[in-house]
Design a protein around this nucleic acid. Sequence first.
DNA 1: AGGAAATTGTGAAATAATGCACATGAATGG
DNA 2: CCATTCATGTGCATTATTTCACAATTTCCT
Lengths: 221, 221
Amino acid sequence: MTKDSKIPNSTIERLAFYSRPLEALLKDGPPIISSEKLAGLCGVNAAQVRKDLAYFGEFGVRGVGYEIKALLREIKRILGTDRKWTLCIVGIGNLGISLVENENFRKRGYVFVAAFDSDARKVGTRLPCGLTVEHEGNIGKVVKALEIKIGVITTPARAAQRVAGILSKAGIKAILNFAPIQVRTPERCIIENVDFSVRLENLVYHLERLYKGENTRKKQT
Amino acid sequence: MTKDSKIPNSTIERLAFYSRPLEALLKDGPPIISSEKLAGLCGVNAAQVRKDLAYFGEFGVRGVGYEIKALLREIKRILGTDRKWTLCIVGIGNLGISLVENENFRKRGYVFVAAFDSDARKVGTRLPCGLTVEHEGNIGKVVKALEIKIGVITTPARAAQRVAGILSKAGIKAILNFAPIQVRTPERCIIENVDFSVRLENLVYHLERLYKGENTRKKQT
DNA sequence: AGGAAATTGTGAAATAATGCACATGAATGG
DNA sequence: CCATTCATGTGCATTATTTCACAATTTCCT
Ligand SMILES: NC(=O)c1ccc[n+]([C@@H]2O[C@H](COP(=O)([O-])OP(=O)(O)OC[C@H]3O[C@@H](n4cnc5c(N)ncnc54)[C@H](O)[C@@H]3O)[C@@H](O)[C@H]2O)c1
Ligand SMILES: NC(=O)c1ccc[n+]([C@@H]2O[C@H](COP(=O)([O-])OP(=O)(O)OC[C@H]3O[C@@H](n4cnc5c(N)ncnc54)[C@H](O)[C@@H]3O)[C@@H](O)[C@H]2O)c1
């Protein structure tokens, strides 16, 4: 294959997924893994693993398996996580703080280089990670100056749509939105909405059915 | 229809999704909405909306549309969000705090009634929301006493799997896990893993393709 | 060297989800 | 009271995704 003949979105999701156990194995595991084993670790079908990878090239050796180190490198290259990405965040509340202070992002190459808030009391404060909170009005200037391409929104829902517009206008090309509202941007900009409540509602739905014995078993996310 | 002849999981996701704009309209909007309008607000196909709803009954009136108030009530009933759910949370770090303090959950009927941590310095402290942090060793006792069915994990990755086991053993039936690891439980227990990095990786993949003009346009999440 | 065992890559089949298009029923207005 | 308009519910075609199953390679063992 190797040609990107319509790669399913779910394949991309799974690639990120596969990389987790692979990273763990890199430290203290065998140097090679089979699609069967990897599939087992991720709770998916082995053919699925092979097909997902085959969209992008032939990374395995027949009769042998996949070399973990090389495979991980390829996956990172495909996903674009082999390089550093700079992010900005708007809305420095509880969730915002927890995101900028989170170690995992930095480890994966996602570095917050600017933080904005509209609250005068927060503007100017220095966060533990070293960033200083700037006023929301400076988004345009800072984003352009630092050439930031990804923005994270952690403002209340009512502000999210407006903030998305500002980010988009400032040149941001991708937005990760945590406010519980479906934001849209006019210009070409990729949006990913993350809504924890939706995840909980999903859980609750299946939980109710669990007791009634209806088979609504869902695949793990 | 009305019979649950294999309801797609994505239908459930979308139901939660539909409820957002509906709630907003409930306050200051018309009393009736068409599938066309609702679909527009959610960025999906109108037939999809109708089909999703039709799995559970006939909630609309031909030639008219759906009565918003009634529709919302039905969706909530379906999802199981028409009643209160009690949750417990394990791992009171930055993310844990932000979750228990979050207003939205409470508004939607998800109430945290117990918080656990293994750090002696945190145990005993009283959180702004009123909860007192208890020691992780008490999970079994407390969960059983309060008959909690849903657990949230916000511990570091290395502790997540063990915590999931403890929760499951304590009688927890559904787990929302934020640690960046795929947790599994032996007993019948529904797990939903939420990994922000996966969302970011997704975004980055599409972002890279965006410039190259390859059409990897993804539907908004 | 040659056969057995392992495991990939992939076409084809099976399964699942989406979207079209229209019959059907409700409301409106003359 | 009939015609027109509107919008639902749904059978069916279409499109997308997953899984099966097997030929193709590689390794290992004798
Ligand atoms: N905290 C959670 O666990 C959680 C969970 C799910 C969703 N969310 C959502 O994430 C968002 C943030 O949650 P939070 O708990 O951090 O809320 P928060 O109230 O603690 O923080 C929101 C911050 O945004 C700032 N802000 C408001 N309007 C702004 C604007 N126009 N420009 C810039 N900054 C602005 C506020 O000053 C505040 O600092 C909310 O929409 C919330 O619903 C949070
Ligand atoms: N903070 C974020 O924005 C964010 C984003 C994505 C993922 N996550 C993940 O969520 C988890 C928590 O993130 P955080 O930023 O709050 O981390 P944190 O280090 O601030 O908090 C972790 C808490 O868990 C407690 N803990 C450790 N082991 C425990 C155990 N066995 N039982 C009970 N409690 C235990 C610690 O004492 C600490 O209070 C991590 O796995 C992190 O990777 C966080």
